[in-house]
């Protein structure tokens, strides 16, 4: 069967590659929630179409792959983009995004007499409060993802990934809050943000994000 790149699974894998820049089959399987076999098969097809290229076991998107993602997004989600319900959704997402970034910042830095210092995580009470704050935000985000998931089921995966990162942080591995080298809350949140922007055909504004 020739690869139909516009199907949801293929799009999911290609977007994940794009968001991760460099990735491999198992990370992509984790990110998309697709079985490893499927991921491998889709990667093979994408490579045949020269949308991605792989070196050793790492895969990267080619320029045409990058263009392809935008193209498919425009085609698949074109109808959704004018939807006032989605606009309202996005308007609710933005403040949540700012709160999230501010909570992650609180995790990384503490305010001392008006000066920001790196959080040395010696004050567990402070850390616990921030973690509770993040917990609340992930909870709210999960509801938002469930709403948009009714239209774009693929995005529901981010709910699971966010909660997975949260669980790991509660289980004592604090890297899963903001470390950029693991699938931390922050890593997943940002991939989600980029993904949502792609779906909605919006550019990152960076008022706070």
């Amino acid at each position: 069967m020739s690869a139909d790149v516009s199907d949801e699974k293929t799009y999911a894998v290609l977007t994940a590659i794009l968001l991760k820049k460099v990735s491999d089959a198992s990370a992509l399987s984790e990110a998309t929630g697709l079985p490893l076999d499927d991921t491998g098969r889709i990667l093979g097809e994408l490579e045949k179409r020269q949308a991605v290229f792989s070196m050793n076991s790492s895969v990267m998107a080619t320029e045409s792959g990058t263009a392809l993602v935008k193209e498919i997004a425009a085609r698949n989600y074109g109808e959704l983009r004018g939807d006032p319900e989605l606009e309202r959704w996005h308007a609710r997402f933005e403040p949540l995004n700012r709160q999230f970034l501010s909570a992650v910042t609180a995790w990384q830095t503490v305010d001392v007499g008006g000066t920001k210092l790196s959080n040395d995580h010696s004050d567990s009470e402070y850390d616990d409060k921030v973690r509770s704050r993040l917990d609340g935000l992930v909870n709210k985000m999960s509801h938002l993802l469930e709403e948009i998931g009714a239209k774009v089921p693929r995005l529901l995966r981010y709910r699971d990934r966010l909660n997975g990162a949260l669980d790991k942080s509660y289980a004592g591995d604090s890297r899963f809050i903001s470390d950029v080298r693991v699938d931390s809350l922050h890593t997943v949140w940002f991939e989600m943000h980029e993904d949502v922007l792609l779906v909605l055909g919006k550019e990152r504004t960076d008022a706070g994000g």
Binding site: R98, L101, S102, V104, T105, Q108, T109, S178, H186
Partner: peptide
Amino acid sequence: TSHAAVVARA
């Protein structure tokens, strides 16, 4: 609290 700031600190 921008992405750059959060990642740089991490």
